[in-house]
Design a protein around this nucleic acid. Structure first.
Length: 103
DNA sequence: GGGCTGACTTTTC
DNA sequence: AGAAAAGCCAGCC
């Protein structure tokens, strides 16, 4: 049974275009849930591994991947990002590609 | 119910 | 630039 916020977050995620990224806090703010960045992470956590949602386009506010660099998830996210042309150097992406919808 | 935990963020050293 | 600290908010014992 999916809650309202889950569905809302899903729709926001799917709206992030290829080659762009955003942060947990940004998604939260966009969902009208300020101060709830951790909520986003919690929702993504329960996402099935075979999801088609672009969860990998969500990074921390400083542009770094939210996983420890030696973890499996870290490598998976990095691979997915680079597959769509996003450069990840030293665990970080260029902050200029943050945000979406114009700007 | 109270305390702990974390796919977070911001401020302060 | 990197680390520590404090804020934040739900879910889970």
């Amino acid at each position: 049974m999916k809650s309202e916020v889950e569905v809302l977050i899903y729709s926001i995620l799917s709206a992030i275009p290829r080659g762009r990224v955003t942060s947990y806090g940004q998604v939260a703010a966009f969902a009208k849930l300020p101060r709830s960045a951790r909520l986003i992470g919690r929702v993504l956590r329960h996402l099935p591994p075979e999801t088609t949602l672009p969860w990998h386009r969500v990074l921390r506010a400083d542009g770094k991947i939210a996983f420890p660099p030696d973890s499996h998830n870290y490598r998976r996210q990095k691979r997915l990002l680079e597959r769509e042309g996003v450069e990840v150097s030293r665990g970080k992406v260029d902050l200029r590609i943050f945000g979406w919808q114009g700007s």
